[in-house]
């Protein structure tokens, strides 16, 4: 289904166009199976993730939330093929992840725009690395730029953009790769509250049009509930996925969604689960008695 299984990083063929409508019957979506991640340090090693299991079914929007330092981003890097597991595995549509893949694309929290390039050339960057001709990649980039609401900014440089616009560039760059799964690591973490609410809504609009699977790391409970189909709550380190909360709010989510009593119930439920873990994490770091 997903084209060649090669996951070598120097492999630079044309990206496979992924057919998102047809999912294979077995092992469809992203499957985390008992993932353990261990970091080597100067004095021994740190177990960042102890045991994480879960499935992101095709087209689902899943948020990963947990106390700070619990390994949410680490887990995302594992799914993105940037980190290896010590035990367990991640598979995407039945294929074990052994490195960065064509059918995943990442958006990072920090600014990852190339400051010497224009918006257009930044958005087209992924396809440029994949060896797509300039004419084709720029034509395709223009469509995605329109989709994320950056039309008119094609020739601007990142320094002329706000933080929110830079993240749109990063999202557009990821979308242009036409991945099956979008991996987002606190993409709005550096933005102010108002901006992140608006850009969150924009993200849902784009997601509605493209229907990628999304794995979205955040530390913001309301953001997680507002955006997702499922919220995975992680425990403090050494972490596990402690609970999965299914968000049964209607779609499309609108401004009024946040006023829905059910929204309040869900955020409270997530907070209750998270509170215990956050306390543990803070105690561990010595920030709470």
């Amino acid at each position: 289904m997903t084209g060649p299984a090669k996951t070598l990083r120097s492999d630079t063929e044309e990206p496979t166009v992924v057919d998102t409508t047809a999912a294979t019957a077995t092992g469809s979506g992203v499957v985390l199976d008992g993932v353990q991640v261990v970091y080597p340090t100067s004095d021994g090693s740190i177990e960042a993730v102890r045991h994480a299991s879960g499935t992101v079914s095709d087209g689902r929007f899943v948020s990963l939330i947990g106390p700070s330092g619990c390994g949410k981003s680490t887990l995302l890097d594992v799914v993105g093929g940037l980190l290896a597991t010590a035990k367990g595995s991640v598979s995407i549509n039945g294929e074990t992840v052994r490195g960065p893949r064509r059918d995943t694309a990442m958006v990072f929290q920090e600014d990852s725009t190339l400051h010497w390039r224009t918006v257009l050339s930044n958005v087209a960057f992924g396809l440029e690395i994949a060896g797509v001709s300039k004419k084709e990649r720029e034509a395709r980039a223009r469509d995605v730029i329109n989709l994320v609401g950056l039309a008119g900014f094609e020739d601007r440089h990142p320094r002329e953009l706000s933080g929110g616009m830079k993240q749109r560039v990063a999202i557009a760059r990821a979308l242009l790769l036409d991945p099956r799964i979008l991996l987002m690591d606190e993409p709005f973490g550096a933005l102010d509250q108002q901006t992140r609410m608006f850009i969150g809504r924009e993200l849902l609009r784009v997601w509605d049009e493209t229907r990628k699977s999304v794995l979205f790391v955040t530390h913001d409970i309301q953001e997680a509930v507002y955006l997702s189909d499922e919220v995975w709550v992680m425990s403090a380190r050494p972490s596990t996925i402690k609970s999965v909360i299914t968000v049964d709010l209607d779609r499309p989510r609108v401004a009024g969604t946040m006023a829905d009593p059910r929204f309040h119930e869900l955020t409270t439920e997530v907070w209750e689960l998270l509170r215990v873990e956050s306390e543990k994490a803070l105690q561990y770091r010595g920030e709470l008695p």
């Binding site: 990083r9 490195g99 990442m106 990072f108 190339l114």
Partner: peptide
């Protein structure tokens, strides 16, 4: 920047691409 290098890896940039399209322009 670490995030640019991470971007390069996630896009499966070759060593040469990483040097020519990410590291050298950023360090220029």
């Amino acid at each position: 920047s670490e995030s640019l290098l991470k971007l390069g890896r996630s896009l499966r940039a070759s060593r040469l691409q990483t040097a020519a399209k990410i590291v050298i322009p950023d360090a220029a």
